[in-house]
Design a protein around this nucleic acid. Structure first.
Lengths: 196, 196
DNA sequence: GTCTATAATTAGATAGAC
DNA sequence: GTCTATCTAATTATAGAC
């Protein structure tokens, strides 16, 4: 905590985090800058001051999520060093499932942009997703196989958390607790290792 | 084709189909009734006439998709009759993957409603999803296990198609052709049968 | 840097002619 | 049943005081 003048306002960060929560809940179109301002406890005008537009704010929010993705990947790479491919896969899957459990909105954004003419999908792929895609150590090197493995894994890992409330109502099971996360991760790891 | 008077207007059906396409592309909030009217080649006022509100129109669109889901399930059940559980699973997975490839918006709707206070999620679960969930023959009977299997399967089966354009840009692989669908289905079936 | 007030646009829904 | 025209409300973005 630097005292005095050195402390620049954390308002942009607060706004970006509020935006992330709002976009996660309502999607890009459903979220409103007024609601975001309210969540961040500032007025709406400040959003335009710190970010030029709703879309620029969305990009800032994406930078924030994928910052966390990078942290997760860095931790994973440490844990994975020197391990066999099988061990790498199990560790990696557990890390990914845990991440999706804590940030279920991540896959929500991917799905929301699946069909997209706004240019946001292209931005997200070029700026963040392609880096993540290249960084997963335990996926196949074959181009086709890698693509299918990636989406099999991401979908299987993430959907139950992205649709948490629905899952609760549909099945009576709440996936958002440590026990359920471990169970999900275990099942997925077993499927992935034996099925390839 | 019934001639003369017997032919009632198919306008409501056209509107519902246009709405389905629009909701799939833009989400509930992003889709506009004006765009839907344009797609259905009618004017906007007719939407209010045939459906009372945007939300009622959305429900009609959901009824249309899940009508197709029911058709898919009926066909699956025919093919599956008298088979072993392993065979049932392979047939079932292929049917599900093919369906998601042809109607990738289905899982988009599930994800969009994952966190939802509007009441649409509850409606969709009670009206359609719970029936589908109960109808899958090859899932475990254990309540917890069944929930995780369902979302593992649905996510793994659907995401690559729901995020098709993204997949193309990210991986260079287009999942939306018969060969890719068969490949995806094969990988998923192998994972699912050996991993349980 | 933060606020209030408002402009400009667009949304869903309505009214009423045909 | 289908259309045109319009209302009301909500949205993003801007202008300008402090």
């Amino acid at each position: 905590m630097s005292p005095g003048k050195t402390h620049t306002s954390d308002t942009p960060r607060r706004i970006a985090n509020a935006a992330l929560a709002a976009f996660a809940e309502y999607g890009f179109d459903g979220a409103t800058t007024r609601d975001i301002a309210k969540r961040a406890q500032v007025n709406q005008g400040l959003i335009t001051y710190h970010f030029q537009s709703k879309e620029a704010l969305w990009r800032a929010a994406m930078d924030a999520v994928f910052g966390e993705v990078d942290d997760m990947l860095a931790t994973m790479e440490e844990q994975v060093a020197g391990k066999t491919t099988d061990e790498q896969r199990e560790i990696g899957i557990h890390a990914i499932v845990s991440f999706f459990a804590s940030r279920p909105e991540t896959v929500r954004f991917m799905v929301e942009l699946g069909r997209d003419q706004s240019g946001r999908m292209a931005w997200l792929v070029d700026r963040h997703l392609s880096r993540v895609y290249a960084r997963l150590p335990f996926l196949s090197d074959d181009r086709h196989r890698r693509a299918h493995e990636f989406y099999l894994l991401a979908g299987a890992a993430a959907l139950i958390f992205a649709a948490r409330d629905e899952c609760v109502r549909l099945t009576g099971v709440d996936p958002a607790n440590d026990e359920a996360v471990a169970y999900h991760s275990q099942m997925l790891a077993r499927m992935f290792s034996s099925g390839l």
